[in-house]
């Protein structure tokens, strides 16, 4: 009984190790960013799960519960972060290299030309801004001396509040959802 459990556990463990090794090799050898992301994702999902589930066969019930919880959280967090990485890379303008693979995210418009929104160098958020989810304020003012601008001078709280908020028109009705969505999309993508 114990030997059979140990053998099954070892086999699953070695399977997990195999996926980790394959993922590592793929990370180095694959030609394209997206295929490398796939390899890294395989390490997170199959490799980690194989190793941890294989360890379950050698442990007592409380430890088994903890290991399975760890697997669940790894699947939730690491795999989704691989997905977020790929999405962020696409937003940044990295495209598939292989010309025989069609990029289905570019949908052809009615006129027959594909619409691809590729941000230019100036508009593309830097990697850190993508990572932090912050927006860059692009307005017309140049700021050669940002240090003086942000000097904390003694202002009253009222002035501070008035300076910080844009004009808020409380009488305006909330815009209907469908119309506002497309407006928002264009505005955000262009900014």
């Amino acid at each position: 009984m114990t030997l059979a459990l140990a053998i099954v556990g070892t086999v699953i463990l070695l399977g997990g190790v195999f996926f980790c090794v394959v993922g590592g090799i793929g990370l180095i050898r694959l030609p394209d960013f997206y295929s490398r992301c796939h390899a890294a994702g395989m390490t997170d999902s199959a490799g980690a799960a194989g190793v941890l589930v294989g360890l379950c066969f050698f442990a007592e019930p409380l430890v088994i519960a903890k290991l399975l919880t760890v697997v669940a959280f790894i699947w939730l967090s690491s795999v989704v972060s691989t997905h977020a990485l790929v999405k962020a890379a696409y937003a940044r303008g990295i495209r598939l290299e292989n010309p025989r693979v069609r990029d289905w995210t570019t949908r052809p418009s009615k006129s027959g030309e594909a619409e691809v929104v590729v941000p230019t160098a100036a508009e593309a958020p830097s990697l850190d801004e993508l990572a932090l989810g912050v927006e860059r304020e692009v307005d017309a003012a140049e700021a050669p001396d940002l240090a003086a601008e942000h000097e904390l001078t003694a202002v009253t709280e009222q002035e501070e509040r008035e300076a910080a908020i844009p004009e808020l028109d409380l009488s305006a009705q909330p815009e209907p959802e469908p119309v506002a969505e497309t407006d928002d999309d264009d505005e955000e993508v262009r900014s």
């Binding site: 989704v80 997905h83 977020a84 999405k87 962020a88 937003a91 958020p125 993508l130 989810g133 927006e135 955000e188 993508v189 900014s191």
Partner: peptide, 9 residues
């Protein structure tokens, strides 16, 4: 902006 279209995340 660019994270908004990520429903999975």
């Amino acid at each position: 902006p660019y994270v908004r279209e990520m429903p999975v995340v």
